[in-house]
């Protein structure tokens, strides 16, 4: 009964288990460069998922890279500057830092919608960018390197380090997708949709759209922070580009294209974007953004009723 009712059905745990199995098996066969790309895309995919969650509530966040960056820098600072190397402590810190930032910003942003929400979140992420670029102690535009992590005291041999990180990333990302899927199909997820559709009705039912949006912001911040932490651990490096608006724009683009069907879709979408980007940057290093922009424009112009209608549901009551 439940399954037929929900327009978007996430009650498919086996799908997530299958995806995880596939990722883990693929880990053995993929050439290392591709697996590395996949791994970083998994990390970034979580941020795209964070953007997608907000889109459910009708909100477009143009600065989600903020939490990505905060998560990454939290891991980087703790390990490189304070010598904490345990991966679980580091990732937990990344999530906590992002959650706190999300809560703080949520207080400001939860009352805004539409372009105000989009632009204010963009602006805040660019402030962080501006601060980091000027922070010489943190390597300015170059960022800094993150030392290898340990796993409850175990430092894997150099040869298998990449395998271990990959496995960890795959497990955490798929589990996160599953958790988000559960969140979205819960009452909280339904309230998100309700915010996108008719806030007035919600208020007269006694619910608080502002509070719902606040929770969406915080949730999205948390998983994006995890993504940032995973990226820092995967690449052993963080830099301010993580919170640059072109990074955030990529997340928005992927979330828009991925649609509402599955929480895995943004992750896969982000992988494809990274793949295209890798080739595009090889062929035409100064035209990648142009290509991305042109594809975005084409998608919007040619599919006017398609993609956008997925989030533009406001005020049609």
């Amino acid at each position: 009964m439940t399954q037929t009712m929900m327009k978007t059905d996430f009650r498919r745990e086996p799908v997530y288990i299958a995806v995880l199995a596939l990722l883990l098996i693929a880990g053995f066969f993929l050439p290392s460069w591709l697996r590395f790309l996949l791994q970083t895309a998994l990390a970034g995919g979580l941020v795209a998922l964070g953007v997608a969650i907000q889109m459910r509530a009708g909100l477009v966040n143009f600065g989600q890279g903020l939490y990505y960056c905060l998560g990454g820098y939290a891991v980087g600072l703790l390990s490189a500057k304070l010598g904490i190397t345990d991966v679980f402590v580091l990732l937990a810190s990344a999530v906590v830092v992002a959650l706190l930032a999300g809560a703080l910003l949520g207080l400001l942003l939860a009352r805004y919608r539409e372009i105000f929400y989009a632009m204010l979140s963009l602006a805040v992420s660019m402030i962080l960018y501006g601060v980091l670029v000027k922070a010489a102690a943190l390597g300015s535009t170059d960022g800094f390197n993150v030392p290898p992590v340990t796993y409850l005291g175990w430092l894997p041999e150099r040869e298998i380090r990449a395998d271990v990180v990959y496995t960890l990333a795959a497990v955490l990302v798929v589990v996160s997708c599953l958790v988000v899927a559960r969140y979205l199909r819960s009452g909280a997820g339904m309230l998100c949709e309700a915010v996108a559709e008719n806030e007035i009705r919600l208020e007269y039912l006694g619910a608080s759209p502002k509070r719902i949006v606040f929770f969406v912001i915080v949730t999205a911040a948390g998983i994006s922070g995890l993504g940032g932490g995973l990226l820092a651990i995967s690449t052993g490096h963080v830099d301010p580009l993580m919170t640059n608006w072109t990074t955030s724009g990529g997340f928005v683009f992927v979330a828009l294209l991925a649609g509402r069907g599955s929480t895995i879709a943004p992750v896969i979408g982000f992988f494809l974007l990274e793949l295209v980007q890798t080739y595009a940057l090889d062929i035409a290093p100064n035209a990648w953004q142009m290509i991305l922009g042109a594809v975005m424009l084409a998608a919007i112009l040619l599919l006017p009723g398609g993609l956008w209608s997925l989030i533009d549901r406001r005020g049609k009551a």
């Binding site: 372009i115 989009a118 072109t246 724009g249 928005v252 035209a287 922009g293 919007i300």
Partner: peptide, 27 residues
Amino acid sequence: FLYGKDEVLMVLVTYALFLILGDAVKL
């Protein structure tokens, strides 16, 4: 071609334009 469309969509459109023009400048 996009008049009357949602304001947030227009932000996306002009963002795409920004990306295109930004690289055009570099080229």
